[in-house]
Design a protein around this nucleic acid. Structure first.
Lengths: 208, 208
DNA sequence: ACTTTACAGTAACATTTATCACACAAGGTT
DNA sequence: AACCTTGTGTGATAAATGTTACTGTAAAGT
């Protein structure tokens, strides 16, 4: 049981693992909890050990524009970046599936960067992969139309959960893509006609 | 003359400055040069000492969607991130005003992170500010319409050059916002009618 | 002075996306 | 069963943006 961190973060050195266990505090949050808001100061770096967190940008009108998901074995890049200078968050983080997270006090960040090679590499890789993901998001909204973005969104979702059924209402999808439910309904219908998906209530099955 | 690095990067320690001068190579590039392409492997971290570089995302149709500009005292975050693992670039970098850049071989990155506190802080701050900038870009395209984005674009430009005249053709603006020249012309005309700008050939003067 | 090129303005039209209005269906509750 | 809530389907219409086509005009080259 105590070795779970080791399994979830296989690249961490044994020493780092025990340092984390000594200094971090494991906390649970229920789905729906908002872990971080725009403008809030960040006090901890967050490692996810269970569940799923959604990182999004909030629009004035209540839009929840999806940036990416965080899953076990990952960390919040924003919290790492801001941590260094205790800066404000520019994003929102909401629990979408009950999570367990390891909270690391911000003072540890700098210290471990110097002392633990595996921590350093993890941080750099986290920056890299999240930056890349955000760039892909930019690509999508800058160059693609809604139908392509919807397909991409569904694909990413099914990859994230590892199954071909996406259990979301049209309204939820619309919110995350910052459009309206009607548009999503219509586009999904077209996709069904093209044989790409099968539609059910609160569930979309990807066929291809 | 030799102290110019010190002036441009005031937070670097004297030891770091001399290390950079020993290991880096100063190179000049003319406006128009493409320094980095999507898919290319990155071999150097780039510090800008003079001029201006545009970082953008390339669309299939030749769009050059602007992410941000790099100016003296700044560094390419992408090159730092990718350097660590010698990853591929996901962006394009083009010189817009003749530049001098200091090229740092990728092996130095990790080494200096451990040895030079001021390098470490510079790198973290570079990550943070660029991430923030990209998030702002996402905000704009996700939540704002073209007229607002255009205003934001012009404002950012005049801030970057420190003057109220933006010397760009409508076509160039359109390319960077991934829209068409006609749209930009229309919107600029409306802005002129609202008294926000004054239009001249190849130059837009911001009035407010 | 003449030609060529790049830049800018604008109308007409097409397409995409947003909004409004409403019907209906599935599940849960009383 | 009757009711309510939530989710879905669809037409009509509006607004924003993209496209085509054409005009004029300033600058640059010859």
């Amino acid at each position: 049981m105590q070795n779970s961190l080791k399994n979830i973060f296989p690249n961490f050195s044994p020493e780092l693992i025990s340092t984390i266990e000594e200094n971090g505090s494991l906390q649970d949050f229920e789905a729906g909890t908002v872990l971080m808001r725009t403008g809030q100061y960040i006090k901890n770096t967050v490692l996810i050990t269970k569940g799923k967190i959604k990182i999004y940008r909030e629009g004035e009108d209540g839009g929840e524009f999806l940036m990416y998901y965080l899953q076990p074995g990952q960390a919040c890049a924003i919290s790492m970046i801001c941590t260094a200078k205790s800066e404000k968050s520019q994003i929102m983080a909401k629990v979408v599936e009950d999570v367990s997270v390891m909270m690391i006090p911000l003072q540890m960040m700098d210290k471990w960067m110097m002392e633990h090679r595996s921590w350093y590499e993890f941080v750099i890789e986290t920056y890299r992969s999240r930056f890349e993901e955000v760039l892909e998001v930019v690509d999508n909204i800058a160059f693609r139309s809604m139908d392509e973005r919807l397909e991409f969104y569904l694909k990413r979702h099914s990859e994230a959960c590892g199954c071909s059924e996406v259990k979301l209402s049209h309204q939820e999808i619309a919110t995350e893509l910052n459009t309206s439910r009607e548009v999503i309904s219509r586009l999904l219908k077209k996709m069904e006609q093209r044989g790409l998906v099968k539609l059910n209530r609160n569930q979309i099955e990807l066929l291809k």
